[in-house]
Amino acid sequence: MKLSDVVSHAGLAFYAEVALVIFAAVFLSVVAYLFIRGSDLQTLAALPLADDVAAKVEVKQS
């Protein structure tokens, strides 16, 4: 008996819809966490600007 025989008769055709609901729910949870009770993240947002002022201690010719 092949795997496709087992799966074909297992009545799983609905599971894509279940997955849709699960993924949409997880995604909406992220939205909720961020916008209802999100913490202050502005220091993290400034990381790209910080590398300009990283301690450059020496310049040498290569």
């Binding site: 301690a55 450059k56 201690v57 020496e58």
Partner: peptide, 10 residues
């Protein structure tokens, strides 16, 4: 003529 190499500390 030659590129400067910047040494960084962290």
């Amino acid at each position: 003529k030659t590129y400067e190499e910047i040494i960084v500390e962290a």
